[in-house]
Design a protein around this nucleic acid. Structure first.
Lengths: 325, 325
DNA sequence: TTGAAAGCGTTACCAT
DNA sequence: ATGGTAACGCTTTCAA
């Protein structure tokens, strides 16, 4: 429109030297008036920088994951990045599919919360081979890559100790698949607490199945129907906490008089239940922020592999009996 | 690698005529082996088709919105589209910012759930002027564009009638901002029911403020502290339902003996509360699917403006007294 | 101070 | 049947 070369325009708009003040003003004014915005697609094609990251979660509609996503997104935005959020459906096949689609879009990195089915990591190794930055968050794995997770062992241990101190002796554990690190860690903390307090471990009280509402429901009903039913349950996933709670109430048992229960959940879910659930509160804001931070560092060439653990704290409400000591 | 021209490769890979079977085989094999995938950025630059849509929600961490997003995403994926999910923070400024950033990324269309602050629509008019396809969902507005919303008037009417039939006569209404269409519609249904049953409308029982946990809490406490406190509350947003419920319980009142309450929420939130909340269940799956469908149609040149209403149903639980008739 | 051209990956069109 | 080239929007390097 000004009858000049694009390179001049480029220089002017980027504030580089080598444009007469006169011309520069004309250019910036016209750009403003026309509502000019650089086309990021062109830049992407040229330099393969899309300023875009991908996020993969097992179930975006589940509060826990949605909250982490919100914080990753907030942090990303502050650093000029956009997020493409995808949902693996908590399945391995969905996870690999999401990765493929994100790579097609040339995201600069991927933040992954593993599906409960994921016990092999070939798809992640492939990312490594291609030098695609990625970070595991919340549900991580024992492979050599950056991870952000909550302090699962210790928080489960604290929760179990709290149950024991409240007088519980037959404490059940309700978790996800046996080979999932998150379940393994939380079970580890649970077992450690039992050993510390010299309480016999009863295999029948440990339920590691599928993370889903229905599975949690039937596992809890099974526990409650045993000859020597538990006097407390530690549930190790928000979904399982909800289903276990409803199973107990549905059976007409009183909480915490007949049975205590602790869940992994957020403030407001606990606040809705009656009695309010004693729960492990994870610092999801920090998980989200650190997740982006590690990804960002990787994108910018920092290849130190950090494995960060974020503290989680037990919040005591009314679904557990108070300690006598 | 094969020492041939790119155009030949393009033809071979796209299955177009004009390649010898021999060469075609060589090309496809090599492509397979090399893990070739067409670069969508190049295609985007060339034809401005990104196969990407944007979604704007007030708060991705809130279950209600996250669920709709999940269904939009599922439908989009089935049609070869990716979603860029952004969070307006329930503010107008955030909303316009999200739109700008999505346009920069050249999304082909935008699905918008309005912020509670949005009472002017200049930013949407600008989208229209630029012929960017967009659809409003869940929280819509009275402007000339495609919309998907739940049957707010009728579901609020049904809910109010249920309260009246249960014996309530001083029914409070707790909603969002006065100028938000969703609040207006639900209030409309509420008032209609009162008129139908010849019950006096008391202005002091109608609270239209801010949609937030704290606002809902203080508004409810204010209602409960009135000289003639309500014997029932209709809460018109999931967040307000939660805060009202907790305010009532916190005051030591019994539900439904002292006061009945109805919320807009999902099954599992209702299932967690005790007593379980009677609630209006919206068909979020259908909202999500139709939202993508309308957007998709627009992207493909269909410029008929449809305003779709999805049925919502009252699910009766134990937070309301049963009707005597 | 300004212009010209290459290059990112792809496809469509025209020439060979 | 295959090759060459322009075009998409932008930046960078080199030349004028």
């Amino acid at each position: 429109m000004l009858g000049i070369n694009v390179s001049t325009v480029s220089r002017a708009l980027k504030g580089l030297a080598g444009v007469s003040p006169d011309l520069r003003q004309k250019i910036t004014q016209l750009a403003e008036k026309q509502g000019y915005h650089p086309n990021p697609l062109a830049m992407s094609l040229r330099y393969n920088i899309t300023h875009t990251i991908g996020i993969i979660v097992p179930d975006i509609s589940f509060n826990h994951y949605a909250q982490i996503v919100k914080w990753i997104e907030a942090e990303a935005r502050m650093n000029g990045y956009m997020c493409i959020v995808t949902d693996s459906g908590d399945k391995l096949i969905g996870e690999t599919d999401c990765i493929q689609r994100l790579l097609n879009l040339h995201v600069e990195g991927i933040a992954i919360c593993l599906s409960q089915e994921t016990v092999e990591y070939a798809h992640l190794e492939r990312l490594k081979d291609k030098h695609i930055p990625f970070v595991l968050f919340d549900r991580v794995a024992n492979i050599d890559c950056p991870t952000i997770s909550s302090n699962d062992v210790e928080s489960a241990r604290q929760a179990t100790l709290h149950l024991i101190d409240g007088g519980a002796r037959r404490i059940a554990f309700l978790g996800g698949p046996n080979r999932m690190k998150q379940t393994i860690d939380r079970k580890h903390g649970y077992l450690e607490a039992l050993r510390e307090r010299r309480i016999n471990i009863k295999k029948k009280l440990v339920k590691c199945g599928h993370v889903s509402f229905n599975s949690g429901l039937s596992d809890t009903l099974d526990l409650l129907g045993q000859q020597d039913p538990p006097d407390a349950i530690l549930t190790c996933h928000g979904m399982l906490s909800i289903s276990a709670f409803q199973a107990i109430i549905g059976k007409g048992l009183r909480i915490p008089e007949d049975i205590s229960i602790i869940g992994f959940m957020s403030d407001w879910v606990s606040g809705m239940s009656y009695p309010r659930m004693t729960f492990v509160k994870q610092n999801l804001k920090e998980v989200g922020r650190k997740t982006f931070e590690l990804l960002y560092n990787q994108i910018n060439g920092d290849d130190t592999i950090r494995n960060i653990t974020i503290d989680a704290r037990l919040n005591i409400r009314e679904s557990t009996r108070k300690g006598e000591r």
